[in-house]
């Protein structure tokens, strides 16, 4: 049971991190912030954060395999 609670807690932390990175004024900094290889930085940032969240969730879930 404590293991399951730890899993929930880690994922909740990741959830809050996701909220911060995607739904806070942080995103606004990247509006019109130039581009990277011709791709506007805002796209790069959003997809990178998205991929990062998925990656961390996968790592957390893998730790808790039983």
């Amino acid at each position: 049971m404590p293991r399951a609670r730890l899993l929930r807690q880690r994922l909740l932390t990741l959830f809050l991190l996701g909220l911060l990175l995607l739904f806070s004024p942080l995103v606004l900094y990247l509006e019109g912030a130039g581009d990277w290889l011709g791709i506007p930085l805002l796209y790069v940032y959003l997809f990178a954060v998205w991929a990062l969240i998925i990656l961390l969730a996968a790592v957390i879930a893998a730790w808790h395999r039983d």
Binding site: L7, L11, L12, F15, G18, L19, W50, I53, I54, A57
Partner: peptide
């Protein structure tokens, strides 16, 4: 993005 975040709470 919404479903991606809520999926983290599925635990």
């Amino acid at each position: 993005l919404g479903p991606t975040l809520i999926a983290l709470l599925w635990g």
